[in-house]
Design a protein around this nucleic acid. Structure first.
Lengths: 184, 184
DNA sequence: GTATTTAGTATCGAGTCGAAACTAGTTTGA
DNA sequence: TCAAACTAGTTTCGACTCGATACTAAATAC
Protein backbone atom coordinates (compact mmCIF):
# COMPACT_ATOMS: atom_id res chain seq x y z
CA UNK A 1 0.00 0.00 0.00
CA UNK A 2 1.66 3.19 -1.14
CA UNK A 3 -1.14 5.41 0.11
CA UNK A 4 -0.94 4.33 3.71
CA UNK A 5 0.62 7.56 4.91
CA UNK A 6 -2.04 9.59 3.13
CA UNK A 7 -4.68 7.45 4.78
CA UNK A 8 -3.20 7.84 8.26
CA UNK A 9 -3.05 11.62 8.05
CA UNK A 10 -6.60 11.84 6.72
CA UNK A 11 -7.89 9.67 9.53
CA UNK A 12 -6.04 11.51 12.25
CA UNK A 13 -7.35 14.76 10.81
CA UNK A 14 -10.91 13.41 10.75
CA UNK A 15 -10.75 12.44 14.42
CA UNK A 16 -9.18 15.78 15.30
CA UNK A 17 -11.88 17.62 13.37
CA UNK A 18 -14.56 15.68 15.14
CA UNK A 19 -13.19 16.42 18.58
CA UNK A 20 -12.69 20.06 17.61
CA UNK A 21 -16.32 20.26 16.53
CA UNK A 22 -17.36 18.96 19.93
CA UNK A 23 -15.09 21.35 21.82
CA UNK A 24 -16.44 24.29 19.84
CA UNK A 25 -20.06 23.63 20.70
CA UNK A 26 -19.95 25.61 23.94
CA UNK A 27 -19.30 28.81 21.98
CA UNK A 28 -20.93 27.74 18.73
CA UNK A 29 -17.57 27.68 16.96
CA UNK A 30 -16.96 25.70 13.78
CA UNK A 31 -13.68 23.78 13.35
CA UNK A 32 -12.35 26.21 10.75
CA UNK A 33 -13.05 29.18 13.01
CA UNK A 34 -11.09 27.52 15.79
CA UNK A 35 -8.21 26.86 13.42
CA UNK A 36 -8.11 30.53 12.45
CA UNK A 37 -8.23 31.58 16.10
CA UNK A 38 -5.44 29.17 16.98
CA UNK A 39 -3.30 30.41 14.11
CA UNK A 40 -3.78 34.03 15.20
CA UNK A 41 -2.57 33.10 18.69
CA UNK A 42 0.69 31.74 17.26
CA UNK A 43 1.65 34.29 14.59
CA UNK A 44 3.63 37.51 14.70
CA UNK A 45 2.63 41.09 13.84
CA UNK A 46 3.47 40.66 10.15
CA UNK A 47 1.15 37.68 9.90
CA UNK A 48 -2.02 38.57 11.81
CA UNK A 49 -4.09 39.74 8.84
CA UNK A 50 -6.99 38.31 6.86
CA UNK A 51 -4.72 37.52 3.96
CA UNK A 52 -2.19 35.68 6.11
CA UNK A 53 -4.95 33.54 7.62
CA UNK A 54 -6.17 32.90 4.09
CA UNK A 55 -2.75 31.65 3.00
CA UNK A 56 -2.31 29.61 6.15
CA UNK A 57 -5.62 27.81 5.83
CA UNK A 58 -5.40 27.52 2.04
CA UNK A 59 -8.83 29.05 1.42
CA UNK A 60 -10.06 32.11 -0.46
CA UNK A 61 -10.10 35.48 1.24
CA UNK A 62 -13.86 35.91 0.92
CA UNK A 63 -14.43 32.70 2.83
CA UNK A 64 -11.94 33.62 5.53
CA UNK A 65 -13.38 37.10 5.87
CA UNK A 66 -16.69 35.50 6.84
CA UNK A 67 -15.17 33.25 9.48
CA UNK A 68 -13.22 36.15 11.00
CA UNK A 69 -16.37 38.25 11.14
CA UNK A 70 -17.95 35.59 13.32
CA UNK A 71 -14.89 35.38 15.58
CA UNK A 72 -15.07 39.16 15.99
CA UNK A 73 -18.81 39.10 16.72
CA UNK A 74 -18.10 36.65 19.53
CA UNK A 75 -15.34 39.02 20.79
CA UNK A 76 -12.70 36.31 20.50
CA UNK A 77 -10.60 38.54 18.29
CA UNK A 78 -10.41 42.33 17.84
CA UNK A 79 -9.64 44.20 14.63
CA UNK A 80 -6.95 46.88 14.84
CA UNK A 81 -6.21 49.15 11.89
CA UNK A 82 -2.56 49.36 10.87
CA UNK A 83 -0.97 52.74 11.62
CA UNK A 84 1.07 53.00 8.45
CA UNK A 85 -1.00 51.16 5.83
CA UNK A 86 -4.70 51.87 6.23
CA UNK A 87 -5.69 48.93 4.04
CA UNK A 88 -4.37 46.47 6.59
CA UNK A 89 -6.29 45.25 9.64
CA UNK A 90 -4.46 43.38 12.39
CA UNK A 91 -6.36 40.63 14.15
CA UNK A 92 -5.61 40.37 17.86
CA UNK A 93 -6.80 37.46 19.97
CA UNK A 94 -8.67 38.78 23.03
CA UNK A 95 -8.51 37.48 26.60
CA UNK A 96 -11.69 35.50 25.97
CA UNK A 97 -10.11 34.06 22.83
CA UNK A 98 -6.98 32.95 24.67
CA UNK A 99 -9.04 31.46 27.46
CA UNK A 100 -11.00 29.37 24.97
CA UNK A 101 -7.80 28.15 23.29
CA UNK A 102 -6.22 27.25 26.62
CA UNK A 103 -9.18 25.04 27.43
CA UNK A 104 -9.64 23.33 24.08
CA UNK A 105 -6.51 23.42 21.94
CA UNK A 106 -5.10 20.88 21.32
CA UNK A 107 -8.07 18.66 22.15
CA UNK A 108 -7.73 16.71 25.40
CA UNK A 109 -8.06 13.23 23.97
CA UNK A 110 -5.46 13.96 21.34
CA UNK A 111 -3.05 15.11 24.03
CA UNK A 112 -3.83 11.90 25.91
CA UNK A 113 -3.15 9.83 22.80
CA UNK A 114 0.25 11.46 22.33
CA UNK A 115 1.36 10.19 25.71
CA UNK A 116 1.44 6.69 24.21
CA UNK A 117 4.62 7.83 22.44
CA UNK A 118 7.93 7.97 24.26
CA UNK A 119 9.72 11.32 24.41
CA UNK A 120 12.07 10.19 21.67
CA UNK A 121 9.24 8.89 19.52
CA UNK A 122 7.31 12.15 19.87
CA UNK A 123 10.38 14.12 18.88
CA UNK A 124 10.96 11.85 15.90
CA UNK A 125 7.33 12.09 14.79
CA UNK A 126 7.56 15.87 14.82
CA UNK A 127 10.81 15.82 12.89
CA UNK A 128 9.42 13.51 10.22
CA UNK A 129 6.14 15.37 9.82
CA UNK A 130 7.99 18.68 9.58
CA UNK A 131 10.02 17.22 6.77
CA UNK A 132 6.92 16.03 4.92
CA UNK A 133 5.10 19.33 5.49
CA UNK A 134 8.06 21.34 4.28
CA UNK A 135 8.38 19.25 1.09
CA UNK A 136 4.65 19.37 0.52
CA UNK A 137 4.50 23.14 0.94
CA UNK A 138 7.36 23.42 -1.50
CA UNK A 139 5.65 21.12 -4.02
CA UNK A 140 2.42 23.12 -3.89
CA UNK A 141 4.26 26.42 -4.05
CA UNK A 142 2.70 27.67 -0.81
CA UNK A 143 4.07 30.10 1.71
CA UNK A 144 6.17 28.29 4.26
CA UNK A 145 4.97 29.85 7.55
CA UNK A 146 7.92 29.15 9.81
CA UNK A 147 9.08 30.32 13.22
CA UNK A 148 10.71 33.77 13.06
CA UNK A 149 13.96 32.82 14.80
CA UNK A 150 14.80 30.16 12.21
CA UNK A 151 14.24 32.52 9.27
CA UNK A 152 16.94 33.68 6.87
CA UNK A 153 16.00 37.31 7.55
CA UNK A 154 16.41 36.97 11.31
CA UNK A 155 19.69 38.66 12.32
CA UNK A 156 21.27 38.95 15.74
CA UNK A 157 23.22 42.21 16.16
CA UNK A 158 24.98 43.80 19.13
CA UNK A 159 21.89 46.01 19.62
CA UNK A 160 19.44 43.10 19.62
CA UNK A 161 17.52 41.04 17.10
CA UNK A 162 16.56 42.47 13.75
CA UNK A 163 14.35 41.47 10.82
CA UNK A 164 16.35 42.09 7.66
CA UNK A 165 13.18 42.22 5.59
CA UNK A 166 11.29 44.87 7.55
CA UNK A 167 14.37 46.39 9.25
CA UNK A 168 12.47 46.38 12.52
CA UNK A 169 13.69 45.34 15.96
CA UNK A 170 12.34 42.07 17.37
CA UNK A 171 11.92 41.02 20.99
CA UNK A 172 12.79 37.58 22.32
CA UNK A 173 9.04 36.88 22.45
CA UNK A 174 8.61 38.03 18.86
CA UNK A 175 11.04 35.52 17.43
CA UNK A 176 9.13 32.54 18.84
CA UNK A 177 6.09 33.32 16.67
CA UNK A 178 5.09 32.14 13.22
CA UNK A 179 5.77 34.45 10.30
CA UNK A 180 4.27 34.31 6.82
CA UNK A 181 7.43 35.83 5.35
CA UNK A 182 9.51 32.95 6.64
CA UNK A 183 12.33 31.90 4.32
CA UNK A 184 14.71 29.01 4.94
CA UNK B 1 5.34 24.06 22.36
CA UNK B 2 3.32 21.06 23.36
CA UNK B 3 0.81 21.46 20.55
CA UNK B 4 3.31 21.20 17.74
CA UNK B 5 2.22 17.76 16.68
CA UNK B 6 -1.41 18.84 16.61
CA UNK B 7 -0.42 21.80 14.46
CA UNK B 8 1.59 19.69 12.01
CA UNK B 9 -1.25 17.25 11.42
CA UNK B 10 -3.78 20.05 10.96
CA UNK B 11 -1.55 21.75 8.42
CA UNK B 12 -0.81 18.61 6.47
CA UNK B 13 -4.52 17.87 6.42
CA UNK B 14 -5.31 21.38 5.19
CA UNK B 15 -2.89 21.06 2.29
CA UNK B 16 -4.20 17.61 1.48
CA UNK B 17 -7.77 18.88 1.55
CA UNK B 18 -6.89 21.71 -0.75
CA UNK B 19 -5.24 19.47 -3.29
CA UNK B 20 -8.13 17.01 -3.03
CA UNK B 21 -10.57 19.84 -3.73
CA UNK B 22 -8.61 20.67 -6.86
CA UNK B 23 -8.43 17.06 -8.03
CA UNK B 24 -12.16 16.65 -7.56
CA UNK B 25 -13.11 19.57 -9.77
CA UNK B 26 -13.08 17.53 -12.96
CA UNK B 27 -16.02 15.48 -11.68
CA UNK B 28 -17.47 18.09 -9.33
CA UNK B 29 -16.53 16.00 -6.29
CA UNK B 30 -16.15 17.51 -2.82
CA UNK B 31 -13.27 16.37 -0.57
CA UNK B 32 -15.57 14.43 1.76
CA UNK B 33 -17.15 12.58 -1.17
CA UNK B 34 -13.71 11.56 -2.36
CA UNK B 35 -12.83 10.34 1.11
CA UNK B 36 -15.94 8.18 1.20
CA UNK B 37 -15.17 6.80 -2.26
CA UNK B 38 -11.61 6.03 -1.25
CA UNK B 39 -12.73 4.28 1.91
CA UNK B 40 -15.17 2.13 -0.05
CA UNK B 41 -12.35 1.03 -2.33
CA UNK B 42 -10.33 -0.22 0.65
CA UNK B 43 -12.93 -1.94 2.85
CA UNK B 44 -14.29 -5.46 2.93
CA UNK B 45 -17.83 -6.78 2.45
CA UNK B 46 -18.74 -6.32 6.12
CA UNK B 47 -17.80 -2.66 5.96
CA UNK B 48 -19.20 -1.27 2.70
CA UNK B 49 -22.42 0.17 4.10
CA UNK B 50 -23.67 3.67 4.84
CA UNK B 51 -23.22 3.12 8.56
CA UNK B 52 -19.64 1.92 8.21
CA UNK B 53 -18.76 4.99 6.13
CA UNK B 54 -20.44 7.10 8.80
CA UNK B 55 -18.29 5.57 11.55
CA UNK B 56 -15.16 5.82 9.46
CA UNK B 57 -15.61 9.51 8.64
CA UNK B 58 -16.95 10.36 12.09
CA UNK B 59 -20.08 12.09 10.79
CA UNK B 60 -23.81 11.49 11.20
CA UNK B 61 -25.59 9.01 8.98
CA UNK B 62 -27.92 11.60 7.47
CA UNK B 63 -24.97 13.63 6.24
CA UNK B 64 -23.21 10.60 4.83
CA UNK B 65 -26.38 9.38 3.13
CA UNK B 66 -26.42 12.66 1.17
CA UNK B 67 -22.81 12.36 0.04
CA UNK B 68 -23.32 8.74 -1.03
CA UNK B 69 -26.40 9.75 -3.02
CA UNK B 70 -24.24 12.12 -5.02
CA UNK B 71 -21.55 9.47 -5.60
CA UNK B 72 -24.29 7.13 -6.85
CA UNK B 73 -25.79 9.79 -9.13
CA UNK B 74 -22.35 10.20 -10.73
CA UNK B 75 -22.18 6.38 -11.12
CA UNK B 76 -18.99 6.17 -9.10
CA UNK B 77 -20.60 3.69 -6.73
CA UNK B 78 -23.51 1.27 -7.09
CA UNK B 79 -25.94 0.23 -4.37
CA UNK B 80 -26.51 -3.51 -3.97
CA UNK B 81 -29.14 -4.83 -1.55
CA UNK B 82 -27.94 -7.45 0.89
CA UNK B 83 -29.33 -10.92 0.16
CA UNK B 84 -29.93 -11.90 3.78
CA UNK B 85 -30.75 -8.64 5.54
CA UNK B 86 -32.94 -6.41 3.41
CA UNK B 87 -32.19 -3.32 5.53
CA UNK B 88 -28.57 -3.36 4.44
CA UNK B 89 -27.26 -1.83 1.21
CA UNK B 90 -23.73 -2.63 0.04
CA UNK B 91 -21.85 0.15 -1.72
CA UNK B 92 -19.64 -1.08 -4.55
CA UNK B 93 -17.13 1.17 -6.29
CA UNK B 94 -17.70 1.06 -10.06
CA UNK B 95 -15.07 0.95 -12.82
CA UNK B 96 -15.45 4.72 -13.23
CA UNK B 97 -14.98 5.15 -9.49
CA UNK B 98 -11.79 3.09 -9.46
CA UNK B 99 -10.48 4.95 -12.47
CA UNK B 100 -10.98 8.28 -10.73
CA UNK B 101 -9.22 7.04 -7.58
CA UNK B 102 -6.29 5.69 -9.58
CA UNK B 103 -5.77 9.11 -11.10
CA UNK B 104 -6.20 11.25 -8.01
CA UNK B 105 -5.64 9.34 -4.80
CA UNK B 106 -3.30 10.03 -3.07
CA UNK B 107 -2.77 13.47 -4.62
CA UNK B 108 0.30 13.71 -6.87
CA UNK B 109 2.11 16.47 -4.99
CA UNK B 110 1.68 14.64 -1.71
CA UNK B 111 3.22 11.54 -3.24
CA UNK B 112 6.05 13.71 -4.51
CA UNK B 113 6.56 15.19 -1.06
CA UNK B 114 6.83 11.73 0.50
CA UNK B 115 9.83 10.96 -1.67
CA UNK B 116 11.81 13.44 0.46
CA UNK B 117 11.76 10.75 3.13
CA UNK B 118 14.12 7.78 3.00
CA UNK B 119 12.58 4.31 2.92
CA UNK B 120 13.38 3.90 6.60
CA UNK B 121 11.97 7.28 7.50
CA UNK B 122 8.75 6.58 5.63
CA UNK B 123 8.37 3.28 7.42
CA UNK B 124 9.05 4.93 10.77
CA UNK B 125 6.55 7.73 10.07
CA UNK B 126 3.87 5.19 9.31
CA UNK B 127 4.68 3.21 12.44
CA UNK B 128 4.51 6.28 14.66
CA UNK B 129 1.31 7.66 13.13
CA UNK B 130 -0.32 4.24 13.43
CA UNK B 131 0.53 4.26 17.09
CA UNK B 132 -0.96 7.73 17.60
CA UNK B 133 -4.07 6.88 15.56
CA UNK B 134 -4.62 3.69 17.48
CA UNK B 135 -4.32 5.46 20.85
CA UNK B 136 -6.52 8.30 19.67
CA UNK B 137 -9.21 5.94 18.40
CA UNK B 138 -9.10 4.17 21.72
CA UNK B 139 -9.34 7.46 23.67
CA UNK B 140 -12.37 8.58 21.68
CA UNK B 141 -14.01 5.16 21.90
CA UNK B 142 -14.28 4.84 18.15
CA UNK B 143 -14.30 1.75 16.00
CA UNK B 144 -10.77 0.77 15.12
CA UNK B 145 -11.07 -0.03 11.40
CA UNK B 146 -8.07 -2.28 10.88
CA UNK B 147 -6.87 -4.64 8.19
CA UNK B 148 -8.71 -8.00 8.30
CA UNK B 149 -5.62 -10.22 8.45
CA UNK B 150 -4.36 -8.59 11.65
CA UNK B 151 -7.68 -8.99 13.44
CA UNK B 152 -8.27 -11.18 16.47
CA UNK B 153 -11.14 -12.92 14.67
CA UNK B 154 -9.03 -13.87 11.67
CA UNK B 155 -8.20 -17.59 11.87
CA UNK B 156 -6.13 -19.71 9.54
CA UNK B 157 -7.39 -23.30 9.33
CA UNK B 158 -6.38 -26.27 7.23
CA UNK B 159 -9.35 -25.50 4.95
CA UNK B 160 -8.42 -21.84 4.48
CA UNK B 161 -8.96 -18.55 6.26
CA UNK B 162 -11.97 -17.99 8.44
CA UNK B 163 -13.63 -15.06 10.20
CA UNK B 164 -14.48 -16.22 13.70
CA UNK B 165 -17.06 -13.48 14.07
CA UNK B 166 -19.13 -14.18 10.95
CA UNK B 167 -17.96 -17.82 10.52
CA UNK B 168 -17.47 -17.13 6.82
CA UNK B 169 -14.57 -18.17 4.60
CA UNK B 170 -12.18 -15.43 3.48
CA UNK B 171 -10.01 -15.27 0.37
CA UNK B 172 -6.42 -14.04 0.36
CA UNK B 173 -7.70 -10.84 -1.28
CA UNK B 174 -10.37 -10.43 1.41
CA UNK B 175 -7.93 -10.35 4.28
CA UNK B 176 -6.04 -7.35 2.84
CA UNK B 177 -9.09 -5.11 3.21
CA UNK B 178 -10.23 -2.84 6.03
CA UNK B 179 -12.90 -4.16 8.36
CA UNK B 180 -15.08 -2.17 10.73
CA UNK B 181 -15.29 -5.14 13.11
CA UNK B 182 -11.54 -5.17 13.53
CA UNK B 183 -10.37 -6.06 17.03
CA UNK B 184 -6.76 -6.15 18.18
C1' DG C 1 -47.28 -10.65 17.83
C1' DT C 2 -46.38 -6.32 19.57
C1' DA C 3 -42.15 -3.52 21.13
C1' DT C 4 -37.66 -2.34 20.31
C1' DT C 5 -33.70 -1.96 17.64
C1' DT C 6 -31.15 -1.25 13.36
C1' DA C 7 -30.18 0.46 8.37
C1' DG C 8 -31.00 3.93 5.76
C1' DT C 9 -33.52 8.31 3.80
C1' DA C 10 -35.60 13.11 3.77
C1' DT C 11 -35.82 17.72 5.35
C1' DC C 12 -34.34 21.80 7.83
C1' DG C 13 -31.41 25.72 9.10
C1' DA C 14 -26.79 27.34 10.04
C1' DG C 15 -22.46 27.46 8.27
C1' DT C 16 -18.45 26.56 4.59
C1' DC C 17 -16.72 27.26 0.33
C1' DG C 18 -15.08 29.43 -4.29
C1' DA C 19 -16.18 32.88 -7.61
C1' DA C 20 -17.00 37.27 -8.72
C1' DA C 21 -17.99 41.96 -7.98
C1' DC C 22 -17.09 45.49 -5.00
C1' DT C 23 -14.67 49.51 -1.80
C1' DA C 24 -10.81 51.78 -0.36
C1' DG C 25 -6.01 52.59 0.21
C1' DT C 26 -1.08 52.26 -1.89
C1' DT C 27 2.35 52.01 -5.45
C1' DT C 28 4.02 52.68 -10.06
C1' DG C 29 5.51 55.07 -13.85
C1' DA C 30 4.97 58.11 -17.90
C1' DT D 1 1.54 64.52 -10.65
C1' DC D 2 -2.02 61.86 -11.35
C1' DA D 3 -4.18 57.99 -13.64
C1' DA D 4 -3.45 53.01 -13.97
C1' DA D 5 -2.35 48.97 -11.66
C1' DC D 6 -2.14 46.65 -7.64
C1' DT D 7 -3.25 45.14 -2.78
C1' DA D 8 -6.23 44.36 1.60
C1' DG D 9 -10.41 43.34 2.76
C1' DT D 10 -15.81 42.88 2.35
C1' DT D 11 -20.18 41.46 0.34
C1' DT D 12 -23.18 38.53 -2.18
C1' DC D 13 -24.36 34.38 -4.63
C1' DG D 14 -25.30 29.47 -5.25
C1' DA D 15 -23.79 24.78 -4.32
C1' DC D 16 -22.57 21.95 -0.75
C1' DT D 17 -21.59 20.17 4.33
C1' DC D 18 -23.18 19.25 8.59
C1' DG D 19 -25.99 17.88 12.85
C1' DA D 20 -30.58 17.36 14.43
C1' DT D 21 -34.80 15.51 13.86
C1' DA D 22 -38.36 12.94 12.02
C1' DC D 23 -39.29 9.44 9.11
C1' DT D 24 -39.74 4.30 6.55
C1' DA D 25 -38.88 -0.40 6.48
C1' DA D 26 -36.85 -4.57 8.00
C1' DA D 27 -35.00 -7.53 11.73
C1' DT D 28 -34.93 -9.03 16.40
C1' DA D 29 -36.44 -9.56 21.23
C1' DC D 30 -39.37 -11.46 24.44
Amino acid sequence: MNDELFNLIERLANLLRQETRLEGQSLGLQPIQQEALYYLSTCNRYSDTTLAVTEFLGLTKGTVSQSLKILESKTLIAKVKDKKDKRITHLKVTEAGLEFLMKTCPPQKFTDAITSLSVDEEFETKRLLKKVLSSYQHATGRTAFGVCQHCKFNRKTSDGILCDLTKEALSSDDIMLICREYVV
